[in-house]
Nucleic acid binder design. Structure first.
Lengths: 211, 211
DNA sequence: CGAGGCATTGAACTATGTCAAACCATGTGG
DNA sequence: CCACATGGTTTGACATAGTTCAATGCCTCG
């Protein structure tokens, strides 16, 4: 983006604090801008007919949410809720839309980003439909480690409730709990309070590969 | 796109016939262009660790396949196979990439398209993880009707093998077959040879909604 | 201390996958 | 024309993964 554009965006953006559990936007709303995550993590989920949420993506620092809706000029198809206390900045759509029309490099950048999201979504589809719950659980933990890291003691930085985990994996809470305790017993995971740590990454990988 | 650009693309494109069952491209390959479906239907699928294909999308006349890979400059993440005899035209990536860099309206158009695909993918994720096999089967038939239409006698135009259907729905062939015969017995579907027709659309919708 | 919310466990139930056998249309070579 | 291999389809019986419901424990906050 040109300096001028950058300045315009930077002038018009506003930051906002969102407490854990609070929504940033909800399915069906119309957004007049996008949000950029400054700090914290947000879950992007969708309510299904049976009343359960499915978490489709977790967005953290540096990620932009709501672009799909702004780009397509449609209402949002996902609900964004803070999983930890967050700081987000809001960028109104006017600036974005006009830049999209005039600056091909910016548009291309957004396009590449969306291409990446789409690929990830395809992978999720395959995982959801072809892998069993244990394998999906294993995937989820490795994903959490890869994307959010571990603390000094080897526990996952991002702490999710069992319910959130089951909404990522697409299973009943009880199944999720049982599998965590099974993994713990087998030495694949360790826990401390709500914190979960990966103890045997290789075993989890083997599980996913079907060994 | 400007006339000039359009001319360039139109000059460089070549058309190709693909017989039913033949691949257009395979997962992992590098594409040097995109394909536009002139006629027929292609299934886009991905092989999972357990050896089963998952069909992620069905592309028909007018749709472009392979853009994600060209835009992101990565190898393809899906395999495209013809489900019926096809005519596709190939558009080499040089023209596309240069246009992406120079023509923001074209880029934006592509971006909007991808935004739409992404939304659909999110929907599929939710369906896959939150709905049971019967509901997913019902969805699949309604999808086939909506996207590919029916013939004069009310049978779905696109005829898929039971295996393809089960790869769309993400289930075992036998489960798929059993559900088709159950739906038939209940009067939701009708069949004639391999052709399947929707007899009671409302009932299928109710099933999906969970009634 | 008591209430509410999350986590855990057990037991019963159901949906779905798996395996094996039978079936049917189709094409092939004798 | 028949015998037979072939590949997709169908059905039955069975095993298992996963869900659901109900009860209990456990922690935190007022």
């Amino acid at each position: 983006m040109s300096k001028e554009e950058l300045k315009r965006v930077s002038d018009s953006k506003t930051t906002r604090l969102v407490k854990k559990g609070e929504p940033i936007f909800k399915e069906g709303e119309k957004l007049d801008g996008v949000f950029c995550v400054r700090d914290g993590v947000s879950k992007l989920s969708k309510l299904s007919a049976n009343g359960k949420d499915q978490i489709v993506k977790l967005a953290s620092k540096g990620e932009v949410i709501g672009q799909r809706s702004v780009v397509a000029e449609e209402s949002v198809n996902l609900t964004a809720v803070a999983v930890s206390d967050m700081e987000v900045c809001f960028i109104p759509k006017e600036g974005i839309v006009s830049t999209l029309h005039t600056n091909p490099n910016f548009t291309l950048e957004v396009l590449r980003h969306m291409a990446h999201d789409l690929k990830e979504a395809d992978d999720v589809i395959v995982n959801m439909s072809q892998k069993n719950v244990k394998q999906r659980m294993a995937e989820a933990f490795l994903y959490l480690k890869k994307n959010f890291g571990e603390d000094e003691e080897g526990f996952l930085r991002l702490v999710l409730s069992r319910e959130d985990i089951s909404n990522v994996v697409g299973t009943a809470i009880e199944s999720c709990i049982r599998i965590i305790s099974e993994f713990k017993k087998k030495g694949y995971l360790k826990t401390s309070g709500k914190k979960i740590g990966i103890a045997d990454e290789k075993a989890l990988n083997n599980l996913i590969e079907g060994f």
